[in-house]
Design a protein around this nucleic acid. Structure first.
Lengths: 181, 181
DNA sequence: CAAGATATGTCAACATGACTGACATAAATT
DNA sequence: AATTTATGTCAGTCATGTTGACATATCTTG
């Protein structure tokens, strides 16, 4: 694996011709599309390794993250945020409950609800994973001035669909206040 | 790109995890971690919906994207970029070849190699998907000034691991020149 | 040239984490 | 009392990832 034939090899069916699609005006943002791919791949990539040691996967991380961030989240809210089915959630949630990373509390007003909370054990794991991701973010941001850092945040917020926000997005966008931490 | 749907996880047992600093000192970047999750979820969601109509999944999108962007890519290079096994790639690639979205050409120097190229049909699909994602990106950056937009790009580049770059990353970072388009 | 290494392909089995559909239970609402 | 809602669960399927073993063609080397 060595020589690379990128961009200059012999036959190159070439083109670009078909960009039609919906960005009627012109240039496609190949650079950002690709940077998002690699950035996200590496951002989440580190984690799988750590999670393996616990016998968990990404699904577990997602659940623990949101339960930690929004204590007392209902199962239904979690389903909205993660956009998966209750059957899928059920599997990972059951493991997290059995292994004591998360606990359920019956709702006060509505006793059908199961409000979710991270245990200290769960907090520890989610914090460790967030630490790794924070390190990467800090490295990435260290040479960017405050205005640029705010531009990054603004960009990310603007990339998110706002049409039918779930509870978590309402918290993030709705009032500007952060859930905690 | 596409699809990359990694979710959110990161973890690395000890390399830096044990420094504890970031995981317990209250400076965790929860906001950016979460924004990245939602931004990426919606970013790839655009393509996912369209792909369904073709009976393809994210794996197909990833392959077509990189073959389109780096015409003449070798199978081995694609494996490096996607970080999957050849058996996994084989399944998707076979479909794309059978359905005429991609073609193979025997290498000139090394006849063992199969250089990959997108067909016009493949170009059309990949362009359509990039159009959807470009629309979202354009919407997101429209109120960000040029300096801020450059900060976004810088941030994304800095989020990417540089230690053992594959051919594509070498092209992206190595010389600063873009592969094409 | 013969021997080995490399690039690719393929068969088979298995894991994870999605999905659908159907059904059960408890608690709230009407 | 009847219905709806919130949650849980059984059963089967699909997409996409994994290992391991092995085949073939072709390049590289002793």
């Amino acid at each position: 694996m060595t020589d690379i034939n990128f961009s200059m090899a012999s036959g190159d069916p070439d083109s670009k011709g078909s960009d039609a699609a919906s960005s009627s005006n012109g240039e496609l943002r190949w650079d950002i599309i690709e940077l998002l791919f690699f950035a996200y791949r590496d951002f989440v990539g580190d984690a799988d390794h750590e999670l393996e040691a616990f016998g968990f996967g990404r699904a577990h991380h997602r659940v623990m993250h949101f339960v930690h961030r929004y204590p007392g989240l209902k199962v239904a809210d979690l389903l909205d945020v993660l956009r998966i089915t209750k059957q899928s959630l059920g599997r990972v949630l059951k493991q997290l409950l059995d292994e004591d990373y998360i606990v359920q509390k019956t709702g006060n007003n509505d006793r059908r609800q199961r409000l979710l909370y991270a245990t200290p054990k769960g907090e520890a794991l989610v914090g460790k994973l967030a630490g790794l991701q924070t390190d990467r973010i800090n490295r990435a941001v260290q040479e960017i001035d405050p205005a640029g850092q705010e531009a990054v945040r603004q960009f990310l917020r603007a990339m998110i669909d706002r049409d039918d926000p779930d509870k978590v997005l309402e918290t993030i966008f709705g009032s500007g206040k952060k859930p905690r931490e």
